[in-house]
Design a protein around this nucleic acid. Structure first.
Lengths: 107, 107
DNA sequence: GCAATCGTCAACCAAATGGTTGAATATCAA
DNA sequence: TTGATATTCAACCATTTGGTTGACGATTGC
């Protein structure tokens, strides 16, 4: 038995899929364009997109021969609520994220 | 190659492990006591605890024949920062965002 | 010393993951 | 119509995951 949280966290537990989600923050994208930066087959990316779709993190809409991928950040809400319940981690804001970036990138 | 975020999210992608973390929110516990509410073998719980330890979400300290499990919520910080960024990224300055993308794509 | 307790290890198993290639299906464009 | 483009499907493969059981090494208490 696999819950929504299971599939959400499992979908996020892969760098390729997280990178795809980050790309979709900028704009909706076609499958081929999603695949372009990665050094793996289109079929592999297609599978990753299926996993993201099953988790509700993206939706896919076919228009003509192109399937557009759209980020659905609301699907992360339950995961955020769960993970945030661990207290000490006060809700983050924009400043926290920027500090994270600066620290991670050493800039 | 498996990043810290990979192992954190993967560790959270299982209901048994999330339940264990929730239990440890109340207090430190011995392995046997952690296992008690679950209908699976002690060895299975031991494996789950190994996965949580590898992810840094708990630490284990052996005193006598009892191994105490302690929650380490700080290990969730990177995950929560990542996941929360999906509500806030519109506000980011473009350079930081692009570096973030590049880093993700490089992993 | 001896038996019980705590926990892991080892071997095994079924199922899922993450990737490949090659064929198939749809759609567009010339 | 023919050919190129977009995407998935099917079959396969190696590795990991989540579980089992049984044996084992420590540690404790009587």
């Amino acid at each position: 038995m696999s819950t929504a949280l299971d599939t959400t966290f499992a979908a996020l537990a892969d760098g390729t899929r997280r990178a795809i989600l980050a790309m979709l923050l900028e704009d909706d994208m076609a499958v081929t364009d999603v695949a372009e930066p990665f050094e793996m087959s289109l079929a592999a990316i297609s599978k990753h997109l299926t996993i993201l779709t099953r988790a509700g993190l993206i939706t896919q809409e076919k228009r003509g021969r192109v399937k557009w991928c759209k980020l659905e950040p609301e699907a992360m809400r339950e995961a955020i609520v769960w993970i945030e319940s661990f207290g000490q981690l006060e809700a983050l804001n924009f400043d926290a994220f920027e500090q994270f970036l600066n620290k991670e990138l050493g800039s």
